[in-house]
Amino acid sequence: MDFRFTEDQITLRDSVREYLEGTHTPELLRKLDEHGNRDDGVWNGLVEMGLAGLLVPEDQGGLGMGLIEATLIAVELGRANVSEPIVDTAFVAAPWLAAKGQTDRLGDIAGGALKVALAHDVNPWVADLDQAGAVISHGKLADVAASPVALDSVDPLRRLSARGDLGGGDPLLLDLAALMAAAQLVGAADRMLALAVDYAKQREQFGQPIGSFQAVKHHAASVAVKVEFAKPVLWRAAYALQNGHARGSVHISHAKLAATDAAIFAAETAIQIHGAMGYTYEVDLHFWMKRAWALAGAWGDRAFHLKRIDDAVIGGGIDLGPDRTFASEMIHA
């Protein structure tokens, strides 16, 4: 029993964080917003970092890492508000294809040549379908046929298309994508808290920084509690899915729920702390807030995941009590 990341995992996360802090700035987000919101330079940078092949086996040109590393990095992508379809392609499609034994295009994914979109009945849209070279739909990797009908998201950096006949109810696809949405929500929540705290240190009223007012402090502290307690739930969900645990889906739903609640709470609190500035299109905050709204409903909304937990907890599918936290891990040990 050791609930920690390895030093290698921390190093990897830190290098991705540092890279994104340096390159994927709020100025870049504004530029993307004005100029068509996707950028080959950004995509190529992520590919050069090795992210496209992170989960692709080494003999197919990837780094052969696992979902724990991918989840850690998805948090960073959420923190930086990366909108290129790297998570869908590399952290969802790649492990899904590998699990299904559909391995022939994994090399293309690792090399950054193939972007994969994901269609599932749980969403009325498909993200980045217009950019994708292929789409996972009804249990297999398919070509993108007719030119997709665009849908307009509140999130200016999301590119959505109508799902049409694409879709299917694949449970593994849903679990992978819900886990990665949860990770990005945690990253976004962290960032929104940081933006609010930075603002509260600078903005002065009544002759002092608003961050010295206790009402503002307590708002921020409450967000910190919510975000920090979502994290271990997320790590555990990644671990459970990585190791194929029987109750993995329940843990993923828990992570999605906790991450959603943390991010929405962070968004509402952060806008409050920004005052009218928070209600503008000028301030950085809005990018993350809108991403949080989008991801909150994506890959199973609150009601969907609550129901999956409810079925297990009240319905009796999961053992309860103080000695059962790692019970599903124990079964598979």
Partner: peptide, 26 residues
Amino acid sequence: REAVTQAWTDAEAYALNTYMVASTIQ
């Protein structure tokens, strides 16, 4: 009903966090 489900999720979250902290201190 939702509050009951939430009780379980939050108690789990607290346990997970504690295991993380214990591992770190160790």
